[in-house]
Design a protein around this nucleic acid. Structure first.
Length: 450
RNA sequence: GAGACGCUGGUGUAAUGGCAGCACAACGGGUUGUGGACCCGUUUGUAGCGGUUCGAAACCGCUGCGUCUCCCCA
């Protein structure tokens, strides 16, 4: 073990894995754009109150699990444990509640929670998410869920199930809480310790308890669906009908509640079903719901909202478990070699036009024998070697050798780009300025995989 | 945050109180220079700190990190 290690619960993404994340990023964010959810980037830290006010005091996530950020003793900031509250804060701060509604955002950012690390549960982890403000309609809930189902299908994740529930709107929730509190208080002495505590802090969660006896008791508890208002019920029916019509399968799970206090009405989770992930309870790959009171909680107007957040790390590993190829080769396709031990700058000069053309080109800097340089290029995964400084490659000529086919040709320097192009692909170059004549065609950054 | 179990070169492992070894990888050289082979050689480790002991990778304590069960949750 090295002297220094990454901080607990945080990890390095080595190039292959980072490339895999990049691919997921491209897929998720391109889909978000297609749905009209442009990306927003918020700071990595916020005033701790942003999370404490919105998530609720019963939530560890925004409480004891939040990283403090301080500068010269001035505290008060926390590393973001989730994405919705910062986006809501930005929505309010920039007066976007007065922009045409609804206002939609997507994000992809690292989150931080000071929990004890376990499989697929890191202290720094990545989340993608969608938020829609100002749309009270059930269609917004349905679209968010349809987006997620479509995304999982698009990336090839099959082993999952959608669980759906409603916990009622703000008024109904008061009724629900009161009824559940009354019910569970009768059994107070039989509840497990955690649930006794929840009796005070978040009754809803008792329904979700893992303790066997508590579960028995919870089985007889009043049903949330019987306590909510007619409007809430109508909303839920509209959401389920919408999903039915779109052919999206789901299970209604009356025990499904969510950890963060700001949720109202619709809550849902996409849960992994591969045995690898089901031993230890449920692991969800994405989850979300409606949060109609959130903006108001933050001191803004009464704006409804609905959103979803997904764990990138979870998605990544679930895909790998399923055998989906996520990682991308990060090798250079072309290696520049030379028999001349002292021509470092010439090797770079040789690589330049190839790189400009879009090939991935690495250089052997050494003065080793050509033999060893070739072997090294092969071990680095190169498909083509471009060789200078040998007998054959005198006078403005180079050798282009296909390392796979084990064939080579001597070619003029001016033709090297063409010759290399016969063996390996060019990769698209992102451009900051549109090429002449392309005006209006691609107003956004091009998807590199197009 | 609580409990349990773990931690030996880059990777995988051996050594159960008595010389830290092996394989792969990496690096260098050779095979008189266009290849992953082969040959020779080199580098790198007991997670950290302390204790017990003539002697510790091993036993004890603290810390760090990981995995599992809770908690919480993506």
């Amino acid at each position: 073990m090295p002297t220094y290690q990454a901080p607990r619960g945080m990890r390095d993404l080595l190039p292959e894995e980072a490339a895999g994340f990049d691919r997921l990023f491209a897929v998720v964010m391109a889909r978000a754009r297609r749905y009209g959810y442009p990306r927003i980037v918020t700071p990595i830290a916020e005033d701790r109150e942003v999370f404490l006010r919105t998530s609720g005091q019963s939530s560890d996530t925004a409480g004891k699990e939040m990283y403090d950020v301080s500068l010269h003793g001035q505290a008060g900031l926390g590393l973001r444990p989730e994405g919705t509250a910062p986006v809501a804060r930005a929505y309010l701060e920039h007066g976007l509640h007065r922009a045409p509604q609804p206002v939609r955002f997507s994000y992809w950012d690292p989150m931080f929670r000071g929990q004890r690390p376990q499989k697929l549960r890191y202290r720094q982890f990545w989340q993608w998410g969608l938020e829609c403000f100002g749309a009270p309609e059930p269609s917004a809930d349905v679209e968010i869920i349809e987006f997620t189902a479509g995304l999982l299908a698009e990336v090839g994740l099959t082993d999952h199930v959608l669980k759906l529930n409603t916990i009622g709107g703000a008024e109904s929730r008061e009724k629900v809480k009161a009824a559940l509190t009354e019910y569970f208080t009768k059994y107070r002495d039989e509840l497990d310790e955690d649930s006794k505590e929840r009796l005070r802090t978040s009754v809803l969660r008792i329904v979700d308890s893992k303790d066997p006896r508590t579960r028995e008791i919870a089985a007889g508890a009043p049903k949330v669906s019987d306590l909510i208002s007619d409007d809430d019920r109508a909303h839920f029916v509209a959401v389920s009908d919408g999903l039915d019509r779109l052919g999206i399968r789901y299970e209604v799970d009356p025990r499904k509640v969510r950890g963060l206090d700001y949720y109202t009405r619709t809550v849902f989770e996409f849960v992994l079903t591969d045995p690898e992930y089901t031993q230890a309870g449920e692991i969800s790959v994405a989850g979300g719901g409606r949060y109609d009171g959130l903006v108001r909680t933050m001191g803004g107007p009464d704006v409804p909202g609905v959103g979803v957040a997904g764990g990138v790390d979870v998605l990544y590993f679930a895909l790998k478990t399923q055998g989906v190829k996520v990682d991308e080769s990060v090798n250079a396709d072309v290696y520049v070699l030379s028999g001349d031990p002292d021509d470092g700058a010439d090797r770079i000069q040789l690589a330049t036009p190839l790189r400009e053309a879009g090939f991935r080109v690495a250089i052997d800097y050494s003065k080793r024998s050509l033999d060893k340089q070739l072997e090294s290029a092969l071990k680095h995964g190169a498909k083509v070697a471009v060789i200078r400084g040998t007998e054959e490659s005198r006078g403005g000529k180079v050798i282009v050798r296909d390392l796979v086919a084990k064939e080579q040709r001597v070619t003029r320097l001016a033709a090297v780009v063409v010759e290399v192009g016969r063996h390996v692909p060019k990769w698209p170059k992102p451009r900051l300025i549109d090429e002449p004549g392309a005006a209006g065609e691609t107003p956004f950054l091009a998807d590199p995989r197009d």
